[in-house]
């Protein structure tokens, strides 16, 4: 490797610094920036992870059961077996995410030790703590968390989350709650942005959100981190709908591997997320995909069985 004098000067400075900073805020949030315009897919085996990667997924979520199976089976849903997660990490070159239970910081420590690229502190698993979420600042591993409104989103960011997704209602294949949550977050942002500065403290109180983050939203007109949609996306049109509403990318849980032709559905949702604003392309993409996941109408789910009300 040829060394320039410039490089040598760089080396000097490098040594002067104690250590390059690892796991800081920009680096954590930065990975989420790289996922924008992309699709993150739930997978339960290394083979599924390969199918997702081949279809153009930007990342995979490694878990033992997709949300619709968790919903069907009942019982306590926990972090996946490290063997399964490591097997998926070894199978693909794209970043791998995995879920920890809300408040279960030891599951999170284990995921970080496994080298997981992003932890989803997720309402899809059974919460481990009814009062407190994980203190996400304590980790080099970045976090994504679910939210239904700006208050919930900013509380999670206040705790150190580097990426937000809508909660939606996971495992249903019904898009209505993801739409509701995405619209709510965007409406809250508009309200903050349009408020005179003297009203921001009261808004922070009403939203139960950290004041500094409310001020930041007022200044920039967007969340301080990347904002994706999740919970009920089952077709290319669903993905494009959320993108047009204003999210920056999508998670697809049960929607791919519970459809009749997962490889084709995965490919189509990736295409639709890129060309979300082009109806001619979307019409072409939506042709002949086979059956989408069967789905459950979310309004038929009793409140006690809703996943989105887990966490606060």
């Amino acid at each position: 490797m040829a060394t320039s004098t410039n490089g040598a000067r760089g080396a000097q400075r490098w040594k002067e610094m104690s250590k390059p900073e690892v796991g800081d805020w920009r680096v954590k949030g930065g990975l989420a920036q790289m996922l924008k315009g992309g699709v993150i897919m739930d997978v339960v085996t290394p083979d599924q992870a390969k199918i997702a990667e081949d279809a153009g997924a930007v990342s995979v979520m490694a878990l033992e059961r997709v949300p619709s199976d968790i919903r069907r089976d009942g019982g306590v849903a926990r972090m996946s077996d490290p063997d399964l997660i490591s097997g998926i990490i070894d199978a693909v070159s794209i970043p791998v995410m995995a879920k920890a239970r809300i408040g279960h910081f030891v599951e999170a420590q284990i995921l970080e030790a496994l080298g997981v690229d992003y932890c989803d502190e997720s309402e899809v698993l059974t919460p481990a703590d009814n009062a407190y979420h994980i203190d996400k600042w304590q980790y080099k591993m970045p976090y994504v968390c679910g939210a239904r409104n700006i208050g919930e989103a900013l509380r999670r960011i206040g705790e150190g989350a580097a990426m937000i997704r809508t909660k939606g209602e996971a495992g249903t294949g019904d898009i209505v709650h993801a739409v509701t949550h995405a619209r709510q977050i965007l409406a809250d942002i508009r309200a903050i942005q349009n408020a005179p500065t003297e009203e921001l403290m009261s808004m922070a109180r009403d939203f139960q959100a950290p004041y500094e983050l409310v001020v930041e939203v007022a200044r920039t007109g967007k969340l301080p981190v990347v904002n994706f949609a999740a919970g009920g996306i089952a077709t290319p049109a669903d993905a494009a709908l959320l993108m047009q509403i204003g999210v920056e990318g999508v998670f697809v849980g049960s929607g791919i591997f519970k459809s009749s032709n997962p490889a084709k559905m995965a490919d189509a949702i990736v295409r639709a997320t890129t060309h979300f604003n082009d109806p001619d392309m979307l019409a072409e993409i939506s042709r002949g995909l086979g059956d989408a996941m069967p789905g459950i109408e979310a309004s038929k789910i009793p409140e006690a069985e809703q996943l989105q009300t887990r966490g606060w």
């Binding site: 410039n6 400075r13 490098w14 796991g23 800081d24 680096v27 930065g30 080099k140």
Partner: peptide, 19 residues
């Protein structure tokens, strides 16, 4: 070479002189 420095937990910032 991809992911040369490691996985996400090894990501970092540093000062760089550029010709």
């Amino acid at each position: 070479a991809r992911n040369y420095f490691g996985r996400q937990v090894d990501s970092f910032e540093a000062e760089l002189n550029i010709n």
